[in-house]
Computed example of a mutant assay.
Amino acid sequence: MKKLGLSLSLLALVVGMTACGSKAETKKETTESKSKEEKVIKVASQTMPMTDVVEVAAKEAKKDGWTVELVQVNDNIQYNELLKNKEVDANFAQHEPFMQKFNQEKKADLVAIQKIYNAKVGFYSKNYKNMSDIPDGAKVAIPNDVSNEGRALAILNEQGLITLKDGVGFNGTLKDIEKNDKKLEFMSIDLLNLAESYNEKDVALVYNYPTYIAKIGLKPADALFLEKTVDERFAISLVAREDNKDSDKIKELKKAMTSQAVKDFLEKEHSDTLTPAF
């Protein structure tokens, strides 16, 4: 009986030690997993070259022990929704006026952290090679969101095709057009669908960004005219939230996205469509 009792005691001791060991190992694994997770930066983006910039920045951040995960979406809504809902740490897909409009509509607190590049935007025409050839009553396709609509109208104002009210600048709307001598007819279309208007026979001018017009084989050099005065507010920017804008993750991401590697990439691979903004 004494031997049996001793054996049972030894067994209990071994089981206890094994359990403690398992708990310690589990705690260690949890700590390591949490540590790795803290070094992961999730960034939502939509399409090239924004996604390319994130990937170049990821290689730079890796040198400092960080992992940048690209979360790619296919519209102009999800990257802000994901950030607002804290499913990602940042996004890179928009300019500040577009972000501000989202904040107003969704009561969000997104913050522009760093301007990365200025896209070369302008108007394209399949049917006309000279602005003077544009007929009266011609149809003009512009974005249907307020921030991009204002930019498009400002470019037309620069070219003398319309006259906007004094002082509206890039914040103009169709209601702010004071003179429209050519009686241009405006078509408000979602930014992602604007390129399709280019091939419509009765559309004379189509506003667009290099990213989207590239889908039909065009680039800024093919534009009838480009924006003359670049407003830095429209630079495509790194965006975070008010609650994490000063975090180590965002500081590291900003460092990586303003690295020489990213600047070299923008200048060497995309000089025909954009200019660095840092």
Rank of each mutant, 00 (worst) to 15 (best):
residue 167 G to R: 04
residue 32 E to D: 10
residue 15 V to D: 05
residue 265 F to K: 04
residue 197 S to L: 07
residue 82 L to W: 03
residue 129 K to G: 00
residue 33 S to F: 07
residue 107 K to W: 02
residue 209 Y to R: 06
residue 76 N to P: 04
residue 257 M to R: 13
residue 185 E to P: 03
residue 261 A to S: 14
residue 65 G to M: 08
residue 92 F to T: 09
residue 33 S to L: 08
residue 36 K to L: 14
residue 141 A to L: 10
residue 273 T to M: 13
residue 11 L to G: 09
residue 206 V to P: 11
residue 113 I to D: 12
residue 112 A to M: 13
residue 11 L to Q: 05
residue 145 D to C: 01
residue 217 G to D: 12
residue 220 P to I: 12
residue 39 K to C: 03
residue 58 A to M: 11
residue 13 L to K: 07
residue 3 K to T: 11
residue 232 E to K: 15
residue 98 F to S: 12
residue 41 I to F: 04
residue 35 S to A: 11
residue 76 N to W: 15
residue 250 I to W: 04
residue 24 A to H: 06
residue 212 Y to H: 08
residue 145 D to Y: 07
residue 231 D to E: 02
residue 185 E to D: 12
residue 100 Q to G: 04
residue 77 I to P: 02
residue 234 F to L: 11
residue 122 G to L: 14
residue 101 K to A: 07
residue 134 I to E: 05
residue 49 P to H: 06
residue 231 D to R: 02
residue 115 K to C: 01
residue 97 P to F: 15
residue 67 T to G: 03
residue 6 L to K: 10
residue 236 I to F: 13
residue 276 P to T: 07
residue 255 K to W: 09
residue 99 M to V: 15
residue 270 H to L: 02
residue 74 N to K: 10
residue 201 K to I: 06
residue 56 V to C: 11
residue 215 K to E: 10
residue 269 E to A: 12
residue 146 V to K: 15
residue 2 K to Q: 03
residue 254 K to E: 15
residue 246 D to I: 14
residue 74 N to D: 15
residue 195 A to L: 02
residue 224 L to Q: 03
residue 270 H to R: 04
residue 195 A to E: 02
residue 130 N to L: 14
residue 198 Y to Q: 07
